[in-house]
Write a protein that binds this DNA or RNA. Structure first.
Lengths: 190, 190
DNA sequence: GACTGCCTACCAACTGGTAGATAGTCTGCA
DNA sequence: TGCAGACTATCTACCAGTTGGTAGGCAGTC
């Protein structure tokens, strides 16, 4: 088997495991079973669990960064941008998985330091994107906002992370969209 | 040592451990070290980890239920009730701990079923309380709300859970109050 | 003596790893 | 063209440490 296939299979399965049972609970044995190689072989691709976690977060961040960049550049109104952003989270839950960094963040205090740092970067990235969209929306008079925009960005991000948690605990993915929608509607300048 | 002392010491330490490193990562060995008895002795008080978890959540729920009942009965305006409710979450983070059920909820998919059920009950309890306060506030014309109130309750609870997560990941407890405050202000009938 | 609350000793299962062996593939050189 | 060596990707075997537990014993109290 080609290294690229195995490596990406390992990453895909690791992501699924972290997003369904958390970083602490998933093991190389779980991965071995799912990918069909021996546990010890995984170390060839990822020498330590921490390194696997780091690569996992980095690739997730790259994907998400690209997604947000694309969404930010779309020629649609800022309200739709925000709602589409919220849809990313809802889609996660509908797939039966927590968003990765929400899954990791709850455990942040005992993640290895390199992973904690990456989770923080994830959140900062999201806040910056939200701020940019809010700024754009305020400039276009789509939103009526008080400064600093970061405060509103924090509110929106918190609501989505929290809605994911609540939806996860209640096993009801339909929680997310209405929560976020009413917040976005509340930003309207009207 | 009296059983009541040891048992409550175990529960207190277990709560702290769950709220700082999660249910999956804490062990009877951690508890043994903190309370100063041997690991095997813990089984005398709590035969299984699941039972310890169940008792932990039940006692937390009782405390929280009493707190919410007390707060709900206070002769203050409904806005203050909500803000005080939000302060419970902020106080948790300022203590260097996640709120218990937020810590558990992220891991909900692989908690033992009896614990998953308790986490769900926790959230339902909070939603009911929030709904009651929102209903009271709407009747007094403190709030301008659309029905169903549960939708707004979900939004508020989500924001607090999420703000706890974001604050935890960013190691910045000051995130919570401003997030919640602006949401509560946004409910004002004005 | 009965009960409580601790202890030691032990268990199977599991964790993330280390180390060396093997087999297949590729490349360079005679 | 064939062969040897290097490389890749897997394997077996093993490791120390850890987990939540079981079982029986001991000491203190009533």
């Amino acid at each position: 088997m080609k290294a690229l296939d195995t490596k990406s299979a390992l990453l895909a399965e690791a992501e699924n495991l972290v997003r369904t049972k958390g970083y602490a609970s998933f093991s190389y044995a779980d991965l071995a079973e799912r990918v069909g190689i021996r546990k010890a072989s995984i170390h060839h691709h990822f020498p330590t669990k921490e390194e696997l976690g780091a690569v996992l977060i980095d690739t997730y961040l790259e994907r998400f960064t690209a997604q947000l960049k694309e969404l930010g550049a779309e020629d649609i109104d800022t309200r739709s941008k925000l709602l589409t952003y919220g849809d990313f989270f809802a889609a996660s839950l509908e797939d039966g998985q927590m968003p990765l960094c929400g899954a990791l963040a709850a455990d942040a205090a005992y993640l290895p330091a390199s992973l904690q740092e990456r989770v923080r970067i994830f959140f900062e990235l999201h806040l910056e994107w939200l701020e940019a969209v809010l700024r754009e929306g305020a400039a276009k008079h789509d939103f009526k906002l008080s400064r600093p925009y970061r405060k509103t960005a924090l509110m929106l991000l918190s609501a989505l992370q929290g809605a994911s948690i609540v939806a996860w605990a209640l096993k009801d993915p339909s929680v997310i969209k209405p929560v976020f929608r009413q917040l976005v509607e509340g930003l309207a300048a009207k």
